[in-house]
Design a protein around this nucleic acid. Sequence first.
RNA 1: GGCCCCAUCGUCUAUCGGCUAGGACACGAGCUUUUCAUGCUUGGUAGAGGAGUUCGACUCUCCUUGGGGCUGCCA
Length: 438
Amino acid sequence: MSEIRVRFAPSPTGKVHIGNIRAAIYNWLFARHTGGKFLLRVEDTDIERSTPEAIKALFECMEWLGLDYDEEVFYQTKNVKRHLEVVEQLIASGHAYREERTSRDGKTGVVTMFRMPKEGIIEFDDIVKGRMAKKAEDVQDFAIVRSDGSPIFHIANVVDDIDQRVTHIIRGDDHVENTFKHICIFRALGAQVPKYGHLSMIVNQQGKPYSKRDGAAFVGEFREQGYLPEALFNYLLLLGWNPGDDREVLTRDEMVRLFELEKVHVTAARFDIKKLQWMNGEYVKRMPRDVFEAELRRRVASAGLSIPQGFDVAFLADQMQVRTKFLSDMPDSIAYFFTDDYAIDEKAVEKRLRKPGVKETLEDMVRRFSAVAPSDWTAQFLEALVKELSQGGGMGPWVHPIRVAVSGRMEGPGLFEMLQLLGKATTIARLQKTAAGL
RNA sequence: GGCCCCAUCGUCUAUCGGCUAGGACACGAGCUUUUCAUGCUUGGUAGAGGAGUUCGACUCUCCUUGGGGCUGCCA
């Protein structure tokens, strides 16, 4: 019994599509679950698009998602000589032949064709789709070497899989038809045919393959938009697989332990950005508090803002973690704590400030807050103060205007926690300034 | 056109012949609440259609319909 070896074999075109990376995730999980090897093969035969930058982007994407691979990266271009040797072998054994052909775009030249068997049934047990069968006569001979002498995908792919001793090929649905061809190549070479598992596509609302027209389609875009790699990973995993119970948010360990290729769905799955967003929020909420705090500090700093001496960052982090869906929402969502030059939500101003009596309320609060001893400037004390003012009624008439007056927005930490963090001087200054402008 | 594959709430899905069809996202309502969230409670919405097998079918078979893939000197 030889070890399980799977591979992720993308063409480095600069951007990694989510459907593609899901295939990588399934391969990775399958390898980690079975204790096998996960290999990375860069199919860089397209010289035009396969730039060093594109390959670097691919590596970054893999690393970002925590998809570590075993053994050295295999570059397809380095194996061209072998591909061609194997082709000679196929010609010698009668499995391939040269022929002059005219391509679609009118190019005429001599290509090497693979000779398909003319009768019989080609069949295989697909790990996710089940038994697949096709009459050999329904598959045409196909080109394996171009007229310019370069090997074509079919032969390169199969030879590389043989050389890398790949035991399970887990790839996109769009390759099922190729599989019938590839199996014939394996057989013609006397090589053992690997096991196959074909993954359904990720589709859009219309049921068509999900593309960049439908929104973010590349891993890098999700990263830029502030999605956590764990959330994307988890979401993509759930798009076509589930652990068999109601669990949805899983740790990496659980995923590895529970993942079974046999349970991957055959049907295409629709990409639902809303659920991904929810998933991201779940991961933000589950971040260790200190990690969240560090992220908060980092994002505030990289926006050029500085945190004043003595500012209770831990308290702010505590307030913000549960309210943050995307880390990238910071620092905008909390900028008002660190600068007077923060954005003002006009709708909030309209709704909460431009109302009769508000100016007077704010001026009154300036007086009352000014009378508070510095040592009493705590959320608790301030809340008691306003509560008394409201005389048992709702605190809304005070709370809403004050919030907008000091932060410029309608949402955020609890008001009194906010005031405590802002400090007495800033609170009063902003109330005065806002009241003066009404 | 030919070949192949697929079909449960709007979406992701559970169910491996016994179902008052369960969960999650989204949506509605309520509670908690100073805002926004969180949390909790709660509501509605599903087995494409038709035959057959069976005591019994969402589950098995066939047909129809619908959707998708492939049909390159792309991968």
